[in-house]
Design a binder for these strands. Structure first.
Lengths: 338, 338
DNA sequence: TGTATCTCTGTGAACGTTCCCAGAAGACCG
DNA sequence: CGGTCTTCTGGGAACGTTCACAGAGATACA
């Protein structure tokens, strides 16, 4: 396979030592900024490093130190969501900020196939990272199992059940869904439906459960449609279906803002006014919310905080502390759509 | 710092050898699936592995093999774009697919501060990856310099100038902008403006240059507004500003679909009909395009192909081949907005 | 029977660091 | 002057693999 690989041998610490007329040990001390090295030696080493073009080999270092100072972040999302779900970016940035301050390198690993799944598991097991943050895991996720098996310090974003007992940073989807549905009902709506999504995930299940709880006796299974993903397309189709089933529908809870945006388009194309004819609420308070006309009433979920909190849970374990699960608060952002 | 780190010592290949009553070498051969090992030995080793819970230490392996079978993907984007720009996700997935097939692990490293920049440079230099894909680099990017310095096989997505001479996968932004502007003019528009963005990047510069070229003598600097980022907000404000400057404006080229979506909202709020009163075209053919009403006429840019092509360029270099730059085709998607 | 070939196993050396200990040299003190 | 302490340097050992080589035993063939 590899034909004419002619990359020159990299300079090692020994080359530097030779060029500086000093020993390996002294060079190592300079490179790591330790004390007990004379000013004279330090300069000689620095010159030698520049001269031979030395850069430290991390594999060798990781081997002897038995740590990598890197944390993996596993993204296990279906294709379309990587583009549509703005939460992922926020989670990433939140985690990165915390880890960066603690001088850990965040490495993101995406899983898009079974082959990826195995390779990522090997990557984590191999000691290339000291810990892991797992987002959007589902029940019986092989990665989560691999992590648990080798006792790698890890944390979930979200709280899927059926996964190993690891700390997590999550929001209470059920409660939040219950609250915003209640608020929607408070505007006097009589026939309220839901576009549910992602029922293979805890968030999807819990949002549906919250809706159901808030509806109480008014709950009508015919007014719930289900789609596999939190997408704009799901909202578009879902709303059309709901209108078909119940033309008198006057309220909708969409499982996410993207879904709500699709639903709003469907409503407007069907000639319904929002919020006069139909009130609509979403979930996430993503950039979608401010983009809709009227702007969306929705649940604000602190995505960046979820990421940073999960990162902190991993760091805590690295320091021998327990790392207890944390549930973060959500707030309702009441705007013009209901 | 680390208080009671009690993680048990991991089993090594020697532990397995001892448990199986065989040698290091034989265990290594089994683990790597080499031939010349008896069925009997293979079974003994596999049982021993399960018994002692062995997993291979990648640092040791990388050290002796002098390779990591990982490729870094460096994301250097301002905060907001990680959420709004759907191209990044596509590029990522495209690169991942190619690398995954070649059995390389894609590791994404995001840069969000100067501290990150230094750490990522160290990560790349340290030999933890065998190559790198760099997206959205700007002139004088420290990462690009670090990569060039150590001769790491690498490729850009996009073609920033002022960066080291590395292969790249790109589109011809200038030509594409020229073409779609020409098409817009072809619908009989008289007063055509542009909402330009990201002029610190080659894509931003080139799209503006293409617009200018297509306009020829009709080009009016007063009808060009500039914003730092390709965002919905830029489109919203930019369109309002253009309407203020020239109420009779009847055509707009927005530097990206997100910008175009913002502009369309602004137009509709100002009571202008699209496309009757004002024609509008975008760039990217992202998920925004189909979401607008009317749907957006725009330039289709093959983001996933950009990612996969860049990955292929890195793989080529790994195999001792040259890795020549590639410019991919764009196509105009003509829909209802102009 | 001798020899060539194939299959299988064990072991020393190497990869490039960090850690630890020994020891030299000088400063300080009683 | 003898002892202790501090500063600085060198080098052996270890981290956990893979690789190359040597050699044992079995098989095949002339």
């Amino acid at each position: 396979m590899s034909l004419t690989r002619t990359r020159a041998r990299r300079a090692t610490i020994n080359d530097v030592a030779r060029a500086a007329g000093l020993s390996r040990g002294t060079v190592s001390r300079v490179v790591n900024g330790e004390k007990y090295v004379s000013e004279e030696a330090r300069q000689a080493v620095e010159e030698a490093i520049a001269q031979v073009g030395y850069v430290r080999n991390s594999a060798a270092r990781n081997l002897v130190k038995q740590e990598s100072r890197a944390i993996g972040l596993i993204i296990h999302e279906p294709h379309s969501l990587l583009f549509e779900d703005p939460n992922i970016g926020s989670i990433l940035l939140g985690a990165n900020e915390v880890l960066s301050k603690a001088d850990y390198q965040l490495v993101s690993l995406i899983i898009d196939s079974d082959r990826d799944s195995r390779r990522v598991a090997d990557y984590l097991r191999g000691g290339l990272v000291d810990g892991a943050v797992i987002i959007s895991a589902r029940a019986s996720d092989p990665i989560a199992a691999a992590v648990a098996e080798i006792g790698l310090p890890a944390a979930f974003v979200g709280h899927p059940d059926g996964t190993p007992d690891l700390p997590y940073a999550a929001i209470n989807n059920e409660e939040a869904a219950r609250n915003i549905t209640g608020r929607l009902l408070g505007t006097g709506r009589q026939r309220v439906g839901m576009i549910a999504s992602a029922l293979d995930r805890d968030s999807g299940q819990d949002r549906l459960a919250g809706f159901r709880a808030a509806m109480g006796g008014k709950f009508d299974p015919a007014l719930v449609v289900e789609y596999p993903l939190y997408t704009y397309a799901a909202g578009l189709e879902g709303m059309q279906e709901l209108l078909r089933r119940e033309p008198a529908i006057d309220g909708v809870f969409a499982a996410s803002d993207a879904v709500a945006a699709g639903a709003m388009t469907a409503l407007q194309e069907a000639g319904r006014r929002v919020p006069e004819d139909v009130g609509i609420v979403g979930f996430d308070d993503s950039s979608w919310a401010l983009r809709c006309r009227p702007q969306l009433s929705t649940v604000r979920q602190p995505a960046d905080l979820l990421g940073s909190t999960a990162a902190e849970l991993v760091l805590a374990q690295l320091n021998g502390l327990p790392g207890t699960p944390r549930v973060l608060d959500t707030t309702i952002m009441w705007r013009g759509s209901a």
